[in-house]
């Protein structure tokens, strides 16, 4: 019991500080790397504007194009399932919000535990389906490299360990919590250096796409 308690304290102390620091610094470096490359000024007379079309594309790409859905329903459904499951578990689980409140002094309302629990199950299912898809769909199989599988594991572990801890399926409890926190720290440390970065860079990508098309008078 004591050993697992020490482990938990370590994950909540030093390990946490170090991984958050790596996450923040790494992210800033990566974003700087991208934005500092800049973009040449476009000298062609515009037909439309950039800003609003850019914002519009940031929002509109959240929904799939109907033609894609018809051709690859599994990719779309699994994608939605695990993203929603992840976000609900991360942001609307009351203990997570309380932790946030303790650290930053403010929070927001969460969802009842059974609902978050269900979301976590859907998230796990979605991730398993996405993995199956990656291993069997010929296009994804060809595109994927070791990083895609690493990223999958990094995303899967926090959900899995959180689920196991919540249902007291690992004992003693401090060990379960420690493993859960450690899995998140692993995620944080590798986040800036893998395609997990898409969480943030997709806003840039969508904006550039929407803005460049918008300038030509096309909604993308």
């Amino acid at each position: 019991m004591n050993e697992s308690m020490d482990f938990l304290l370590w994950t909540r102390g030093t390990a946490f500080d170090v991984s958050v620091a790596i996450f923040i610094v790494g992210m800033l470096i990566r974003l700087f790397e991208i934005v500092s490359l800049g973009r040449g000024r476009d000298l062609a007379a515009p037909r439309g504007t950039e800003f609003l079309p850019g914002i519009r594309t940031i929002l509109s790409r959240t929904l799939p194009y109907g033609g894609t859905f018809k051709r690859q329903p599994l990719t779309v459904i699994a994608g939605y399932l695990f993203h929603i499951g992840l976000l609900v578990s991360l942001l609307l689980f009351i203990p997570h919000i309380e932790l946030f409140r303790e650290t930053f002094g403010f929070g927001w309302p969460g969802l009842p535990n059974p609902i978050v629990d269900a979301a976590a199950v859907l998230g796990i299912t979605g991730l398993l389906a996405a993995l199956w898809n990656r291993l069997t769909n010929p296009v994804m199989k060809m595109l994927s490299d070791s990083e895609d599988y690493l990223v999958w594991i990094l995303t899967f572990l926090p959900l899995l360990t959180g689920y196991l801890a919540y249902h007291r399926m690992i004992n003693p409890y401090p060990l379960a919590m420690g493993l859960h926190i450690l899995s998140i720290e692993l995620l944080l440390v590798l986040f800036p250096f893998t395609k997990l970065m898409h969480t943030f860079t997709l806003f840039l990508a969508r904006w550039y796409n929407g803005a460049m098309s918008g300038r030509r008078g096309v909604e993308s």
Binding site: R30, I34, P64, T68, Q72, T75, G79, R134, N137, V139, M140, L143, S144, D145, D148, K195, M197, H198, T201, L202, L204, A205
Partner: peptide, 8 residues
């Protein structure tokens, strides 16, 4: 940086 190799 954003490509997630989803194949869409």
């Amino acid at each position: 940086s954003s490509c997630v190799n989803c194949g869409m």
